[in-house]
């Protein structure tokens, strides 16, 4: 905000000239970057295909309706696998995330100089890489199947859960911990009595939140051979069986909505 004098009159402006110029410059640079990005995408696009898109979309839509309802018979088992990948993957991730979180939190780490950076690196590296990429890698190592998917989901979730958990640990009320320590309790007892009760609600919230995300992610792991309903999707896409594709998409949509409902319910019950 600035007031300047112009022709002997005071003029009010929201910003002075320099900050106004800076804002314009930022807009200009931003627009330039966006335009450059757009030309890149545009150059890589076959525009005749692009303009043909509505016709193709209508064509696929026409083939996909009505969904082949009878195919549901073959979807129960992959659906069960998907659920297991998500649930067991989340449990496995939580088991590994808890120690990582305690090592990463400033107030519980045994060494801020050596251990904490390692824990933070585990968090960043597992979090930055999408579960589909982990699945791609693990299918090569462990062979295709549910097991690879489960491990992929677990690894991807470590960083996510550990990050949220260590933030919760850093936010605890130190006075309660101090009080337990003052009784002469051992470090492990201080943890169980002073810290764990304080982070329990956060832990439960994180677990349910991540389970919900994992169920969504495990629906597509099959695309790279890591089990679950994604396998059927891949198969149907490869054979251009659009009525099956539309049924699978409906099933995935319903599963996601149910998981969202369940996680909202559980979160409501805990907090």
């Amino acid at each position: 905000m600035a007031v300047s004098t112009k022709n002997g009159q005071k003029v009010w402006q929201r910003r002075d000239r320099n900050s106004q110029l800076k804002i314009w410059a930022m807009w200009l640079i931003g627009t330039a970057i966006f335009m450059w990005s757009w030309t890149q995408i545009s150059a890589a696009t076959t525009w005749s295909f692009f303009w043909d898109a509505p016709r193709i979309a209508a064509d696929i839509g026409g083939r996909a309706v009505p969904p082949r309802w009878a195919y549901i018979e073959k979807l129960w088992e992959p659906l069960w696998d998907t659920l297991n990948i998500a649930t067991l993957g989340t449990i496995l991730a939580l088991i590994m995330a808890v120690p990582v979180a305690f090592l990463a939190a400033r107030n519980t780490t045994p060494s801020a100089l050596f251990v904490r950076p390692i824990a933070l690196f585990i968090i960043v590296s597992t979090r930055s890489i999408n579960s589909l990429i982990w699945a791609l890698l693990l299918v090569k190592i462990l062979g295709p199947g549910i097991f690879a998917g489960l491990v992929a989901i677990a690894i991807r979730s470590i960083g996510f859960c550990a990050k949220l958990l260590y933030e919760a640990i850093e936010e605890i009320d130190e006075k309660q911990v101090e009080a337990v320590r003052a009784t002469g309790a051992r470090p492990w007892q201080v943890m169980v009595y002073g810290i764990v009760p304080q982070i329990m609600p956060a832990f439960a919230g994180i677990a349910v939140f991540r389970w919900d995300i994992n169920l969504r992610e495990s629906t597509v792991l099959g695309l790279v051979g890591a089990g679950g309903i994604g396998l059927q999707l891949q198969g149907s896409l490869n054979t251009l069986a659009w009525p099956q594709v539309s049924l699978i998409l409906i099933v995935i949509l319903v599963a996601v909505l149910v998981s969202e409902w369940v996680s909202a319910k559980v979160r409501g019950a805990i907090i």
Partner: peptide
Amino acid sequence: NEIVVAILLVAIFG
């Protein structure tokens, strides 16, 4: 899921 959307859009837009 983003991947599902991407599959459909690849089918449509190439």
